[in-house]
């Protein structure tokens, strides 16, 4: 049986992984606006995910300013998928 992933299970980190799964890369500012959190809170969560190898951060200069892009790694996608399966299993088991 697939188990829940402690790193991903935290609400904000789960949301970060979920929205990153919709695209190849998302900008830091867009994620912050979607989650409605401060820069420091988001940075803290991103650092945890980056250290686990679930996301990749890239800084690029575009449109005359530096932008930070965040991408879910293939390992991150697998972890999110397993976590979602585990959540579904909990619901199925409880029925």
């Amino acid at each position: 049986m697939t188990s829940l992933n402690a790193t991903i299970h935290a609400p904000n980190r789960l949301q970060i992984c979920a929205i990153l799964a919709t695209s190849a890369e998302l900008e830091f500012k867009l994620i912050r606006e979607q989650l409605d959190v401060s820069d420091s809170v988001l940075s803290k969560h991103l650092k945890v995910l980056e250290e686990s190898g679930y996301i990749q951060l890239k800084k690029r200069a575009e449109f005359g300013r530096s932008r930070t892009w965040v991408a879910l790694t293939s390992e991150g996608r697998k972890a999110l998928s397993s976590h979602v399966k585990a959540l579904k299993a909990i619901i199925a088991d409880a029925v």
Binding site: L4, A18, V84, A86, K88, I90, I91
Partner: peptide
């Protein structure tokens, strides 16, 4: 341990929030 403490309601809410955010 945490998996044992995650209720069906919490799991359901987590899945709903994933879908809503996406």
């Amino acid at each position: 341990n945490e998996q044992n403490t995650v209720s069906r309601k919490e799991a359901s809410e987590a899945l709903d929030s994933i879908a809503a955010n996406k």
